[in-house]
Design a protein around this nucleic acid. Structure first.
Lengths: 200, 200
DNA sequence: CAATATAACTTAACACTGTTATTTTATTTC
DNA sequence: GAAATAAAATAACAGTGTTAAGTTATATTG
């Protein structure tokens, strides 16, 4: 009983309580190093109780991801109210994507980095990660409509940009030992290089 | 004794035999789903024998990474004898990197994609990965010397380019149900976008 | 050749893991 | 109150990485 007092915890919110504890522990210690028993101990329940709220360990992280990426999609969307310049929207959306990934490295790893066979059956199509990508693509289409880009192939440009920002995000998350130049400078460089590369 | 006949296997090559088996299994089933006992069964030895050749499970994957890094570095180096134009060297080096990844997806996945649960203690400075990266950076420096780029920060440019080509490579390898545009077209788009973005 | 030293390998065991089946406890309903 | 149901806990299974100790094969020496 090292965690919160179960008396005061609203039982209907136990599911969320599990997710919160698990998320913090996944981030702090890594998915593989967090056991069901550890999570259970943290919230003051037995390990098997978790199975009343989640199918298995992977389901926990999957639900965390959906919640987190719903927020990413939301963030990217709301950021775009702040400007009228489509290219500026694109820039800030890309920045939001990268910094969101760095802020939630465990979730990013599981959704975008971890090889498929390990993941759950749900396809990328149905995830909030897909929603985030679609938002970015619509901004790209705005840029094309404004004749700001050198090509009309919105899908190609969107995937090109996504490849770039996914690259810098995943590299910064995974290869922490690499002697990178200053982080923010590198992120800016990637984004500016990409935007310069697609501009008309 | 499901694996190779241990009689015919050269004992001095047992270390390599372990690495080969482990690499294939890591990629096929994921690092977490491959146990020491599985690897041992595959090669026809007991699990503990592996500990005579590797410190622990993580060490196996670490050694696999070093081998792959070495081959990539070799390939990128030899490619650059084929041209005198620094920008063209850069382009072909990047292409080699991406296609190396696509040609050896198993090795690339292990080195650059598969999330490793435990952080590496060995400094990046001492790895073959550093050699591969340095090769690319030296070409970037050639471009700078020829005043072909808009900046003099070779380190920044190199890391920017690496982020981009790693992004497209890892995304294509995982091809997780995402409706990509034609593969070669997308690769060209990423590389040309990056090069256009850094050119003077 | 026999005795010994050493290398290669295996067996047994420990403290864990995710997960399931079963059993207990608490809460609601009649 | 008793019966029904929901919530949680215990016990157990098959598996994990890893270590310590024991065994077998090979090489070295006298």
């Amino acid at each position: 009983m090292t965690g919160r007092n179960r008396q005061e915890s609203d039982k209907e919110n136990l599911r969320q309580e599990i997710m919160d504890a698990a998320r913090e522990m996944f981030v702090a210690e890594g998915y593989a190093n967090v056991s069901m028993r550890k999570v259970a101990r943290q919230i003051g329940y037995s390990a098997t109780t978790i199975y009343l709220y989640f199918k298995d360990k992977n389901d926990i992280v999957q639900q965390i991801c959906e919640q987190t990426f719903a927020r990413l999609a939301q963030n990217i969307k709301s950021i775009q109210q702040l400007s009228d310049n489509p290219l500026e929207k694109l820039r800030s959306g890309m920045r939001e994507y990268v910094y969101f990934g760095l802020k939630h490295p465990s979730q990013y790893e599981i959704v975008f980095i971890t090889p498929l066979p390990i993941k759950t059956e749900t396809a990328f199509e149905e995830t909030n990660g897909r929603v985030a990508f679609d938002t970015m693509r619509s901004v790209v289409n705005e840029c094309i409509a404004a004749k700001l880009l050198k090509t009309n192939d919105g899908e190609l440009v969107s995937q090109t940009l996504w490849a770039g920002i996914h690259g810098i995000t995943s590299i910064l998350i995974q290869h922490g030992g690499f002697p990178f130049v200053e982080r923010e400078k590198l992120i800016d460089s990637v984004i500016e290089t990409l935007i310069t590369g697609i501009k008309a």
